[in-house]
Write a protein that binds this DNA or RNA. Structure first.
Lengths: 148, 148
DNA sequence: TGCCACTGGATTGTGTCAATAGACAAAAGA
DNA sequence: TCTTTTGTCTATTGACACAATCCAGTGGCA
């Protein structure tokens, strides 16, 4: 399934903030942008959506920045992607409604709703904490392979 | 999750052919196009993809047309959508690979691969027979509601 | 006051998708 | 063999969404 750039950037940014959650500091867009190698201007839009979705809180002005609104264990990937990726669960367009409504209904009930349900239940069972742990695993693996 | 017009049309067409499977006849694009109210010219492209994917067989010329390649019980929605919807499981682009490869890996393993797996296992458990039955259910429901 | 950082809107380029069109190939029947 | 029917293939168009950038504005801190 295709995840847009906004979705991927938003998720990466959220993970990055979760890694620093313990410090309690507010983090600037620039620092995340440099850490991840993403355009700062583009990231601004993403954070704007993250804020609107209640994933992060913000403080303006000098020494300002963003902070996760809740503990990383209480933020699921579904939360993040829903905030940033508008097309995740958009209502499917009608296909053959007028001539064959029974086929339209069958596709919706047995296929489209099923897919959305499967995706949703998958995403709401992964938290930012899980991802931080997973990233840590890959970090050590990569150092290990590097030094051999 | 967004399913493109090609995917929806392909699935509707496949269901429609499954309804006529017992007759053993070859069915023309025009008859499906009229049955479903879809542009014939556009449906041609869809059937071309269905054939390439081994979902249907074809006979050219007069009295020609298309036929399901296997029994509807042996054709899954995954088969149909994979044939028609090219972007279903396309490799996700890299996001933060160079600066933060461990985050990239974590997202891939814990999120993207998980989603694709969930979608895949959902779709491969729905057959065209199931959809024909479901459509029949909706048909009777609608007549029922109509005559009350 | 002056800088810093978030806020929001406007814009542009690019690419993909939906849809149409038309030329061509093969099979059946008169 | 000629005509009709139906599938096959490729090119083209228009619309729209997405990725990315820019900039003017606002609020807070020192």
């Amino acid at each position: 399934m295709r995840i847009s750039a906004k979705g991927r950037y938003g998720l990466a940014a959220a993970i990055s903030m979760a890694e620093n959650y313990n410090s309690g500091e507010y983090i600037t867009v620039i620092s995340i942008s440099e850490r991840l190698g993403i355009s700062k201007i583009y990231l601004e839009q993403v954070f704007s959506l993250l804020k609107r979705g209640g994933i992060v809180t913000s403080i303006k002005g000098a020494q300002g920045g963003y902070q996760l609104a809740r503990h990383p264990r209480q933020i699921t990937v579904l939360d993040v992607l829903s905030a940033v990726e508008l097309s995740l669960f958009e209502q499917a367009e009608e296909t053959v409604k007028s001539k064959a409504p029974e086929i339209e209904s069958a596709m919706r009930v047995s296929v489209f709703d099923e897919i959305d349900g499967a995706v949703k239940s998958t995403l709401e069972n992964i938290t930012l904490s899980d991802l931080v742990n997973e990233a840590e695993k890959h970090k050590t693996n990569q150092s290990f392979m590097f030094f051999i």
